[in-house]
Write a protein that binds this DNA or RNA. Sequence first.
DNA 1: TAAGATAGAGAACGATCGTTCTCGACGTCA
DNA 2: TGACGTCGAGAACGATCGTTCTCTATCTTA
Lengths: 210, 210
Amino acid sequence: MPGPISDERNRLDREALLDAAERLFYERGVQAVGMDELRTASGLPLKRIYRFFPTKEALVVAMLRRRDQRWRKALADHVEQVPDPRDRVLAIFDWLAAWFAEPGFRGCAWINVFGELGSSSDAVLAEVRSHKQAFHDQIATWVHATGLPLAEPVRLLAEGAIVTAGISGDPAPANHARKAAASLLKHPDHQPKSTCAHPKSAIDSSLAET
Amino acid sequence: MPGPISDERNRLDREALLDAAERLFYERGVQAVGMDELRTASGLPLKRIYRFFPTKEALVVAMLRRRDQRWRKALADHVEQVPDPRDRVLAIFDWLAAWFAEPGFRGCAWINVFGELGSSSDAVLAEVRSHKQAFHDQIATWVHATGLPLAEPVRLLAEGAIVTAGISGDPAPANHARKAAASLLKHPDHQPKSTCAHPKSAIDSSLAET
DNA sequence: TAAGATAGAGAACGATCGTTCTCGACGTCA
DNA sequence: TGACGTCGAGAACGATCGTTCTCTATCTTA
């Protein structure tokens, strides 16, 4: 059935290619998966793969960008259905706990690809930084709604939990991070009204960020 | 000057090889550095390299193991000269800040190598897990000296700071993590004697670990 | 001094990589 | 109907990888 390929089929095939790339690259690493294996997994001829993406590097960047959109949307959908601002921040760690427990979980795709290509591909490095910045901004938005200057601690606890769970294969860091975040959110220095007066009851400026 | 090579020279050459491997692998990644480049950098013939280590994988593992010893000793030397238990925990983050500011800093060597080889080399994966476990145990020892159940939060803040500083290239996460750790250590729930009585002044068991 | 062993330098090997090219098959349109 | 264009399948290409082998030169030892 030669002849021009419809836009609709191009769209579907491109998605299927990105699906295969995302799965294989995450499971085994970028450099461990060759273009031939990607051809087999996607069912697309090499010629069409190279029409979609001129190089493997471009395919990696596109895969990361699409995963970023899906990943952060799934996180936001879970977190933003929680009404209370402080519980909303804690919901980040509930979502992480569910992610860590998924079969095949192998840590953060962006951290992993940074280890592989961060020093040899500027385009991949930029995509990793872009994702981490967007993740940070998302967290900062939710944390600022609590009125507490805890965006950086929450971000670092989340990153630490992701990397530790990924390497150890144990989802427990999500709960540890959640409890630490809860403790920070309940810190009396951050409570609007304390049941008794402390010598320094004002907002502790030692936690101010930037 | 053929003839048998002295044990002393074998020792020195082996160290020089590991030096070159550690530097190149950290700078550019394991898979991006070939054995030929290692030969050039170390000045050793390929034959002797393969006498020291039968495969590249064995060389990577040996490099990681030696780096683990050096890295954790440098951390311990800095931290354990601080007498006060709480300040000692905070000194972890001071050491991290100095590390992040070093020229050529590119994140955690073990996290990076996990992204590259974690799914394809069991030996490397075991070495990465061993290092992370040892790092955790070291932190737990120092934190337990404070009497506070904060080993997991401190570990996650440290890991989060390392990975965030590595990707962003900005050493600031060390200070953010330090302030968060200081806040947890000063949490009134953890103070032996408070200046006033809280409804729940007992040690907050919600922070208990494991 | 002659024989044997081991060193170093680098060529060679087989495999695999990302990428491009060949080629027969089948649509579209004058 | 016949020339043209685009398709899929996979061979081919040049580079590079980890690893092994060849060959010569020098040391040690009887």
